[in-house]
Design a protein around this nucleic acid. Structure first.
Lengths: 340, 340
DNA sequence: CTGAAAGCGCTTACAG
DNA sequence: CTGAAAGCGCTTACAG
């Protein structure tokens, strides 16, 4: 069943059917009704391949999600999809492998689908800046910064905007909270500093707090590399404590790591926060339902997603330039840190 | 940049370029190299719309995911996407609103994309059987049963296969576990029985256990409707306990509900499992890292996803008929249930 | 407001 | 093994 069949059955031309189906204004009400009757009768839907091939202008926004396992990214995806239902754009969701080069994938998808814009949910622009520069349509990175340290648009990022919290400041805040509670021997459970920009930023924030308060930090001794998962956080906490039994607190880079650490400590017979304090990052629902409630930095997922989409739409429809927005983070005072 | 430009630059016809790019065997090694050199130089990628429009055979499998917030579905999505990378099919992921009619959406997507097959991650076939019947390509529903109670393919489901655990049996097992531990006054935190088939099945299993052991259950008194979320589980547990203070255990239909219930009980000054026992469903990672570890039914996500895809591929490539497979569930003995 | 026609970028018999 | 050509199902000036 094609538009031709519909046209024949309506006794009109294919152009008219096309106009009706695309809500063009220049169709008489009578014709529209006649066409819609036939369309509805057959449950006819336009072939998207043909539509988009012809009207190179395909009104699609591609949403690239890094991995399937981050509740934060998934929540933001939900927010974006819901809002896009009301917008005159199709959403095309592409899920990437955790370890894909997202910029390279983005380019492939860009050539294949020729979208109007792109949303990156998670990802590392710094690592792939050459690739990102090839993306010559407006795009926005959500949850990570794509700006140079001086706040200007970083070199080589093409038309990439970004919305995120200030990861350095947020980590600094969390670390200072631990320090103000009297902790001086703090272990860090963080991501791989070679491959994860966001881990680098959070580590930087931590170090800023250490320095500001005149403390020492021995990276070899007290930094344990971990994936952003429960299991890996658990393993890291054990390793850290074994190597460094005098620690009193754990600074972790995600709530999942924090919960993993709590579990490890619990299984070793310790109680959080009585013997050890643990601080998380992200502010996910499960952190707030944990025993103890995890003290953490909350990333405002809805706002990040909303603002990201708004920035993209402004680029698309009002030709706004790239923009790098920092949205405020929240500090959630849970029950996992105690005063020494 | 189109295939025509490449052809011109190579000094050959567009057909040849097409053959090279589609890995057809009938191309000389020499020509192939020449073409690939030009293709790589420009980073050229075929326009997917045009490819698929022409070769109606588009080798796409659509994966419809119900909602963005289920860790179980997200994990299965990851498994399927990873495996599909090695398969000669493109994966097209469509994320549905939690409250969409997935069968109707599926039909829209089906007409639009003309895929070879479909995977439903989550969903309620019974509710929409007329719509599902319109899907005239092989598809598979993962995590819910699409068969009639007698095990035959249910009427009106078209070419829909399914892979799931036996939800009735699994719930029965969980409920019996509580009963064997001496619990007779059990509250149920479950989904809406009018709209959720899976909730109905799990409730049925629960009732089977109650009946088998000669116990009583007053639905009005002891069944509390809840969403599959932490927050809603928390609210439900409070409501249930207020209405029914003699309960000693909570049978919940998801780990999220179970954790919500634990949190509510904790905040009311009770300890799980000392004063109240709680049993979950799903076997998600966070349940195993909770305090107390949640006793639960584990759905083998990887196996469900893998088997589902296998069944679909068998339909696609070997013309196998629809199949309704039940895979075994695991019982995870955590720390959230105590013997009375 | 409407129809006839060109053409989007490909694939694939067909002929050689 | 390769090229020329038809045609996939649409959209959109263009002419009326």
């Amino acid at each position: 069943m094609t538009i031709k069949d519909i046209a024949k059955e309506c006794g009109c031309g294919v152009g008219t059917v096309s106009r009706v189906l695309n809500n063009h204004p220049d169709v008489s009400e009578e014709t529209r009704k006649k066409v819609m009757a036939v369309v509805d009768k057959h449950g006819f839907v336009l072939n998207r391949n043909a539509s988009q091939l012809k009207s190179q202008d395909n009104k699609t926004i591609v949403i690239l999600v890094k991995g399937t396992s981050s509740p934060l990214l998934n929540e933001m995806l939900g927010v974006i999809l819901k809002r896009m239902e009301t917008l005159p754009y199709n959403a095309s969701v592409v899920i990437l492998d955790e370890y894909d080069n997202e910029a390279q994938e983005a380019i492939r998808v860009y050539y294949e689908q020729k979208p109007q814009g792109m949303v990156f949910l998670g990802g590392n622009p710094d690592k792939y800046s050459d690739d990102f520069a090839k993306i010559v349509i407006p795009s926005v990175l959500i949850s990570n910064e794509a700006a140079s340290p001086d706040g200007s648009s970083a070199q080589g990022y093409g038309l990439l905007s970004s919305v995120s919290i200030d990861n350095v400041k947020a980590s600094e805040y969390a670390a200072e909270y631990l320090i103000k509670k009297g902790h001086t021997k703090i272990g860090v459970i963080g991501g791989d500093l070679n491959s994860s920009e966001i881990s680098k930023k959070r580590y930087q924030g931590f170090l800023n707090a250490i320095e500001k308060h005149g403390l020492e930090f021995d990276e070899k001794q007290s930094y344990e590399v971990s994936k952003y998962s429960f299991k890996s956080g658990e393993t890291a906490a054990r390793a850290l404590l074994e190597r460094n039994p005098t620690l009193t607190a754990f600074f972790t880079m995600s709530d999942a790591m924090a919960i993993g650490a709590c579990r490890a400590l619990g299984d070793m017979g310790f109680s959080v926060p009585r013997q050890f304090s643990v601080i998380g990052f992200d502010g996910l629902p499960y952190a707030d339902f944990y025993f103890p409630r995890i003290t953490t930095i909350r990333q405002p997922a809805t706002k990040l997603a909303d603002d990201g989409l708004t920035i993209l739409l402004n680029s698309l429809e009002r030709n706004a330039g790239t923009k790098h927005k920092l949205v405020p983070f929240d500090f959630i005072e849970g029950e996992s840190v105690r005063e020494l």
